[in-house]
Amino acid sequence: MRISENIRNKMREYHDIRCGKSNRLKPYKNNILLGLAPDGMISVFLNGRCFDNELQFKVQAVEYKVADDFVYPELSEEAQAYVDEYGVPTGIW
């Protein structure tokens, strides 16, 4: 994922803010959080240790058809046993 200049600039923006028991200076929003929701909705938030989540944008994932000769990576034994028993969980996320 490429991070836009707009979001990079927000992450570089200095805030004179102190928080926590130590009252230490925590001036930057240095975390990007991806929120995944049913039906492929993805929310992108910017936050930091002393900041609440700030919604940047939402996007809708789309189903992508892979080539007929695409080879999926092998699953672990545990994952393969789950898929064998329950199938592939699609349509819920």
Rank of each mutant, 00 (worst) to 15 (best):
D84W: 11
R8K: 15
E54R: 05
S76M: 05
F51S: 09
R8A: 05
D84M: 13
G91Q: 05
L34E: 03
P27F: 12
K21P: 00
K10Q: 09
N31G: 07
V66N: 05
D69Q: 08
N23E: 06
E85H: 14
L33V: 15
L33K: 15
W93S: 11
G48S: 12
P27Y: 06
K21Q: 02
V66K: 07
G40Y: 00
K10E: 07
H15T: 13
N30D: 14
R24S: 10
N47A: 15
D84R: 12
V83M: 10
W93L: 14
K58N: 12
F51G: 08
E54S: 12
L34P: 02
K21F: 03
P73C: 02
L75M: 14
R18S: 13
R18W: 15
Y28D: 03
M41W: 08
G48A: 11
L36V: 13
V83R: 12
Y72M: 13
Y86G: 06
M41G: 04
A67V: 07
P73D: 04
L34C: 02
E5N: 10
Q60E: 07
D52H: 15
I7H: 03
L33F: 13
K21C: 00
D68Q: 06
G48E: 04
F45W: 14
R2V: 08
L46M: 06
K29W: 03
K58H: 03
K21V: 01
C50K: 04
Q56V: 02
R24I: 07
Q80A: 13
V88H: 06
K10V: 01
D52M: 14
R12A: 14
E74D: 11
K29P: 03
V71K: 14
Y82M: 10
I7Q: 00
K26Y: 14
D69P: 04
E54F: 01
I7K: 01
H15P: 02
Q56F: 01
Y28V: 08
E63N: 10
C19M: 10
N47H: 15
W93R: 08
N9H: 07
L55G: 05
T90G: 13
S76Q: 08
I3A: 05
N53V: 07
S4Y: 01
E74S: 12
H15R: 11
F51P: 01
A61Y: 04
Q80G: 03
G91W: 09
N6H: 05
I92L: 10
T90C: 14
C50A: 15
L55Y: 03
A67Q: 09
R2M: 08
V83Q: 09
L34R: 04
E78W: 06
Y28W: 13
Y64L: 09
L46P: 00
K26F: 14
V88I: 12
G40S: 04
Q56T: 03
G48R: 09
N9S: 08
S43D: 07
N47P: 03
F51D: 06
A81Q: 11
Q60K: 11
N30V: 06
V71N: 09
V44K: 00
E63D: 11
V88D: 07
Q80N: 09
V44Q: 01
V83N: 08
A81Y: 10
L33P: 01
F45C: 04
E85G: 09
G48M: 04
E13W: 07
F45P: 01
N53R: 13
M41R: 11
L34M: 11
F45G: 00
I3E: 01
R18G: 08
S4Q: 03
V59G: 05
I3D: 00
R24Q: 13
K29G: 00
N23A: 07
E5H: 10
Y72P: 05
F45E: 02
